[in-house]
Write a protein that binds this DNA or RNA. Structure first.
Lengths: 107, 107
DNA sequence: CGACTACCCCTAGACTACCTAGGTATGGGA
DNA sequence: TCCCATACCTAGGTAGTCTAGGGGTAGTCG
C-alpha cells in the first residue's frame, strides 16, 4: 500500500491540474509534485498513458508546441473534461466523507 | 469512475471494521454499508477474496463458527493487522490532504 | 407443501489501472 | 566530454476489483 500513489484518482488529479490552464506532460508531473508538497511523485510511465487515455475519451485536447528546440505536447481541458472534473470532484468529496466515517476519523 | 468503489482502500476499510471486534464476511459487507450510509455497497465477490488475501498476509485470523445452523468464518485482527491499520489510516489522511490540496477544495 | 427471501460461503475469468523498465532526443552546465 | 534536466513514448507485467456464476441453510408467506 504505497503512500504516494493516487489509487484510481489519477485522472481526477490530471484534469484538475489542467483546469488551471494548458500544460504538457512533464509539467503536469511537476505541478502534481509541487501542489501535493511532494506526496504525488508520479513516474512518466504513469502520466503519459493516462493523458493519452483522457484525450481518447474526449476530456483533453492537445497540440504540438516547440519551446527552446524541444517539442512538447500541450494539453488543455475540453468542455467535456471540465464537466468530468466537476463530477469527479464531487465524487471524491463523497468518497472522502465515507472513508472518514468508516475509519472513524475527523474529516 | 464509480462513486461507490473503494479503489485501493478496500483493505483499509475491512481492517477498520474488524478492529471494532471480530466479524464474518457477510457482516463486514453490512457494516461497511451501514457506516458509510449506503455509499460502500460491496459485492461478495470483492470482499471474500480480500479477506482471504488479508489472512494470507497475516493481518487477519479466522475460525469457523456455527450460528443457527449456518456456518460462518469469523475473522479477527492480528497484532500485525492492527499495526497495518494504523499505518494505513495515517497514509489515508496524508493522501486525503494531498488530494484536497491539488483539487483546491477544503478538507 | 412450495416458493421465495435473507443469510452465508466460495471461485474462475476478465478488465483495467498502474508501475517497471526500458527506449529516443535536445540543451546546458561541470 | 559526460551527465543531468527536460521531454516524449511503449511493451509487458502485476495486482486489485468486478462480473457472473456456484454451493447451501433457515424462516416466512401463500
Amino acid at each position: 500500500m504505497g503512500a504516494d500513489r493516487a489509487k484510481g484518482h489519477l485522472d481526477t488529479l490530471i484534469l484538475s491540474v489542467l483546469s488551471m490552464g494548458p500544460g504538457h506532460g512533464y509539467e503536469v508531473i511537476a505541478e502534481l509534485r509541487r501542489r501535493s508538497d511532494g506526496a504525488f511523485d508520479m513516474p512518466e510511465g504513469t502520466i503519459y498513458p493516462s493523458l493519452h487515455r483522457l484525450e481518447k475519451q474526449g476530456l483533453l485536447e492537445s497540440d504540438w508546441d516547440t519551446h527552446d528546440g524541444r517539442r512538447r505536447r500541450v494539453y488543455r481541458l475540453t468542455a467535456q473534461g471540465a464537466t468530468a472534473l466537476a463530477v469527479a470532484t464531487t465524487e471524491w468529496r463523497r468518497f472522502s466523507v465515507s472513508m472518514n466515517a468508516v475509519l472513524g476519523v475527523a474529516g
